[in-house]
Amino acid sequence: MSTDSMYRLLVTIAVILGSIIYGFFINSLARRITARVQNRMGPPLKQPFIDVIKLYSKRTFVTHGIMQTLGPILMLTGIISTLILIPYGKGYLTLYSSNGDLITILYIMTFGQLAMALAVGQAGNPYGTIGVARGLTRMFGYELPLILALISLIALNHSADVNVIIANQHGGIANWNAFRHPFVGITALLAMLGMMSYQPFDNASAPAEVASGPITEFGGKFMAIMMTTNAMFVVAKLALLVDLFFGGASNIFILALKIFLLYLYPLFVGLVFPRFAMEDTFLFFWKWPTLIGFIGLAIAIF
């Protein structure tokens, strides 16, 4: 192992741990902000860490079969392999993104979701399966505008490599993708709502309807892994969106700031809108965002 790849490995491990911590931090910040919006104090900032440790200290773990134990592990694998493909800055921070372009990232994201879905299936709880079905329908919905946005980016930058896309956005805010190609930007932002599974589109794990959806049967250690992977996945997705549409970041701190600011957008939308019914979610994504996406793509091509 040459020194260079050793450094890259160390940086990767650092980034993974950092993303867990930063994910939890953003999560707790979000809970505090929602609390403050609802005129109440909200949990202490270190609450997610406490929750994870408590879940880990549980004495009994209940599993319905091999797939339920294997599911979280595979999900962790999927999320980490997505993480390492996304560049977080320059030099070593680009981790291993030289091995997979935008299409690879788009597809490897589903690996984690499939693993979790299988674990939920093994658990045999109807609430879980309904939650997964809703999640997949929502994914089928928001993928269309997301793909339109990504494809128009590829068309504009004549390359599917994320680093190249970042390079093309250097210079001031003016030539960030979100602003230089407004239609593409708007589609991406609308599609992002679906990706984040936040309030308006959280019908996959709607607390009242399907009893916390897919993770109904997951307690203790599995719940802990679910929360860590969730945190990592949020950071990964936001980092990708920042790279693609908001000019990426030269160093890690600017990236952290941009991620947090971008994270506020779905949060505030979530606080304002009630939960959509399943059919409306699906049609919502296939109506306006797709129209704008097609216009953006048309502009990108001609």
Binding site: R40, M41, G42, P43, Q47, A211, S212, T216, G219
Partner: peptide, 17 residues
Amino acid sequence: RYDWSRLGIRGSATPRQ
């Protein structure tokens, strides 16, 4: 007014959690 989430208490839908 009273907000027990300050104390780290949170509701959970299923007995597992």
